[in-house]
């Protein structure tokens, strides 16, 4: 899933590989690189965050990225600065950003404050309540966000928004959340999030 490449970049790479340098091809790539570059100040170089709160945006499926940006633009997804920033990008730019970051690998630089005592319980709960949608230990993201190695702080904010009804859930997610809270209480999410944040 991290192998998605835009045809143009692929073509430019192919041209370079055989020793041809098309300045126009490089310009097309550079335009997208330059469009995406200012995101790195908060989300990290190439979209992998080395901070402890801002989420990594590399390797996210294009649809997920576009939906998130749409949510920020319309103030329907909870945000701090993103509600203000997303409004500065039109649909074409947002789609170019989505494709750009989807093609970058989701980095897992570590360095998070993981409570290892929570991992076993977290994994057990994740297997039971989460992994049907968040497959491959949360690395895969078919219509959902990447959880594996995502920032713990960001995921805690997200869960808190879901539980408070501030962020929309689909029926399946809502049912799972309710079931988990009923069986184990809301604090059980903390175990699960430590487990996912720790996946390498």
């Amino acid at each position: 899933m991290s192998t998605q490449r835009t045809p143009v970049s692929f073509l430019a790479a192919a041209l370079l590989a055989v020793g041809w340098t098309s300045h126009a091809a490089l310009a097309a790539d550079l335009a997208v690189e330059a469009l995406a570059a200012p995101c790195a100040g908060c989300h990290g170089t190439d979209g992998t965050s080395v901070g402890l709160a801002a989420p990594t945006i590399a390797g996210l499926p294009k649809d997920y990225f576009n939906e998130a940006m749409f949510g920020y633009k319309t103030d329907t997804k909870p945000a701090t600065v993103m509600g203000r920033i997303a409004k500065g990008y039109d649909d074409k730019q947002t789609e170019a950003l989505a494709a750009h970051f989807a093609a970058k690998p989701f980095g897992r630089p570590g360095g998070q404050a993981i409570d290892s005592a929570r991992l076993a319980k977290g994994r057990e709960l994740a297997d039971k309540y989460c992994q049907k949608c968040h497959e491959n230990e949360g690395r895969d993201a078919d219509g959902v966000g990447v959880l594996a190695g995502q920032k713990l702080t960001y995921m805690q904010f997200s869960v808190s928004d879901f539980l408070a009804g501030k962020r929309e859930m689909d029926k399946r997610q809502k049912a799972r959340f309710e079931e988990l809270v009923k069986d184990h209480g809301a604090p059980a999410f903390t175990d699960i999030l430590h487990y996912y944040a720790n996946v390498k």
Binding site: A40, G41, C42, G44, T45, S49, A53, A54, T80
Partner: peptide, 16 residues
């Protein structure tokens, strides 16, 4: 949240 994002911002902008 903004306090946490600010410190995260620092780590990312320095590395970037």
């Amino acid at each position: 949240r903004e306090a946490r994002y600010a410190h995260s911002w620092f780590d990312n902008i320095v590395k970037d």
